[in-house]
Design a protein around this nucleic acid. Structure first.
Lengths: 189, 189
DNA sequence: TCGATACGTATCGATGCGATATATGATGGA
DNA sequence: TCCATCATATATCGCATCGATACGTATCGA
């Protein structure tokens, strides 16, 4: 998904500034499967504005410089819906950790252990974060009676499941890998 | 990981052409967690050659144009090992599928079903491919008695586990999501 | 008081992807 | 038989995007 479409997507959920759009990819509902940097968001918003897909109004703040609130136009709404009909690119996973562990034999076992533990903690953190937000939405829904968004919950559940599976695998296979590395090192002596 | 390091990594497993390096990211042992395109591999190899980290010799072929075999130099070997000491970037997952499904309410339910089924099949295919290659290595190891590489097997196992978890989640939650969408559509009438 | 963090917009250089060009042989379906 | 497609193989171009950086204020904790 190109960043222009991602911006339209965030704005379809309500008006936002460039800064807030960035946060939507860091902590928001898209965090675990899409991302975008300032270096692509701001140019994207400028172009969307020039094309009439969004409109902006400056909001003055005391002390701080003005912020620009962006909002979808009807044309932007239509463009966004059209983008949803395009076939998706295949999912992709990228991991420098696995790259390093692939060459675990060239790594000091202590470093392998550190890398594994850090990654496990990181995955568990993601699980906790996404689970927390999901639980909060469910609590609000129960209290107010307003229904949950099925797509949103499905996607959050996918993230939780995947992160959990990753953490569990690292945990379950950590000791065996480290033992193998030990054996490998001794065999090389 | 930058593409130059990825090229060094592939070459550390034996000499290869640019084309073969590309294949290593499409079908080879790195396929499910790193990738690189021709547009980055060939410039990377040129630069590695200029820096003396790899050496190349042309191999003439009947009919086809010459191919250039690249091989690590001692300096390239050292540079590669140094790269393994750098701390890894956080793992990242990117999914256009989840992006579309996040907005499932704006999708015709039939399309949501098609997307889900295609993604499930794709994940199952990945599981089968990586499992098959892993099983083959294990068979060879059993027959010849030569030990398996612990890093390689760990990484393959991670890929299988994650892809399996993804396929299972999609499978398990498919019908509930589609039912919710149906309910949602009727409630909107 | 001083550094870190949050808010907020913006740009620049480098990296890397995807499409395309150029060749040729093999394979396979209409 | 013929034509399309795929596999082998190298290479480049344009565009999208990332990460770092710049600029500026406010707040909060050590």
């Amino acid at each position: 998904m190109d960043v222009r479409t991602l911006c339209l997507a965030v704005l379809s959920k309500g008006e936002a500034t460039g800064y807030e759009i960035k946060k939507a990819f860091e902590e928001g509902p898209f965090a675990h499967f899409q991302r975008a940097s300032f270096g692509s968001i701001y140019p994207a918003l400028s172009r969307l504005l020039a094309e009439g897909l969004v409109e902006a109004h400056a909001m003055e703040q005391d002390g701080r410089p003005d912020k620009k609130m962006y909002r979808l136009t009807a044309q932007g709404q239509a463009t966004f819906h059209a983008a949803l009909t395009v076939d998706p690119e295949p999912d992709q996973f990228r991991s420098d950790l696995l790259f390093l562990l692939f060459f675990a034999c060239h790594l000091p076992p202590a470093r392998a252990a550190t890398l594994l533990d850090a990654a496990t903690a990181s995955y568990r953190g993601h699980v906790a974060r996404v689970s927390g937000i999901k639980a909060e939405r469910e609590a609000v829904s129960n209290a107010t009676g307003q229904p949950l968004d099925p797509g949103r919950e499905f996607v959050a559940g996918f993230g939780i499941t995947l992160y959990q599976a990753a953490a569990d695998y690292l945990d379950a296979n950590r000791d065996a890998l480290l033992a193998d590395l030990q054996g490998h090192a001794e065999a090389a002596e």
